[in-house]
Amino acid sequence: MRDCVGWGEGEGEGEGGGGPAAGASLEPRDLLPDLVADAADGGSRLSSADRTRLLAHVATCAECQAELQLVRTARRAGWAVTPPTDIAAIVSALPRRPGMVGSRVPPRAYRYAWRIAAVISTVAVGALSVAVLQNRMRPPVRTAPSIQLPVPAAAASPPEVAQLPARSPHVSAPAHVAPAPVGAMATEVASTEPEGGLEVGGRLADLSDAQLNELLGDIDRLDAVPEGEPDLAGPALSARGGESL
């Protein structure tokens, strides 16, 4: 077999990453492992130009063809004898850093964990929606009878509230009060009280310190405690839901 004479005229010199250095000492045979490895793992050890030049050389060089086959076979043989490794055991033996987040779960399991979390979240959101709907259909909580408190004149009928149209019993908060979703149910319940009862909402904010102290004193003097629990055997629901018959 004819020995490889290196790069022929016009083939240039390879400058791939596999050689000892880019330059005159680089031979085509130096680059054969890079050619095989790039084809196997999609790497870019060789530039496109070097690969083209090398393939052109190999096409005309019997020795390089034989050595290319040897390199391919040796690589396959090397991969064939890859001993098994226990990834989970290795990971569990690694030192932990302070403040580590997550668990020692391989990435594949991590992806499954996300799917499980997504399912749990979906179920939780669904259950929450059902609970909210049930709450909305539940009859209003019956509280203690209205307690007539001496409300300061300044807060008795603020102009904002007085001007609100009485179109719905559910509207209770003044227009200038920002919506409060969490307290919406409580506001709705309070709004079912007859006129003249204890007003809640933005009006308390309008009271002066002296008026608040006076109000608190009145509350302290009360001898009755309102019922805190809803009356489950209360009035039936109407077809419209949420309103007492």
């Binding site: 890859t82 490794t85 990834i87 290795i90 990971v91 690694l94 932990r96 850093r97 302070p98 403040g99 580590m100 987040v101 997550g102 668990s103 020692r104 779960v105 391989p106 990435p107 991590y110």
Partner: peptide, 15 residues
């Protein structure tokens, strides 16, 4: 502090 990165590194290079 991301421990999953350790598992990924092991998986990439153990073989």
């Amino acid at each position: 502090g991301d421990e999953w990165a350790a598992a990924a590194l092991v998986e990439r290079h153990a073989q």
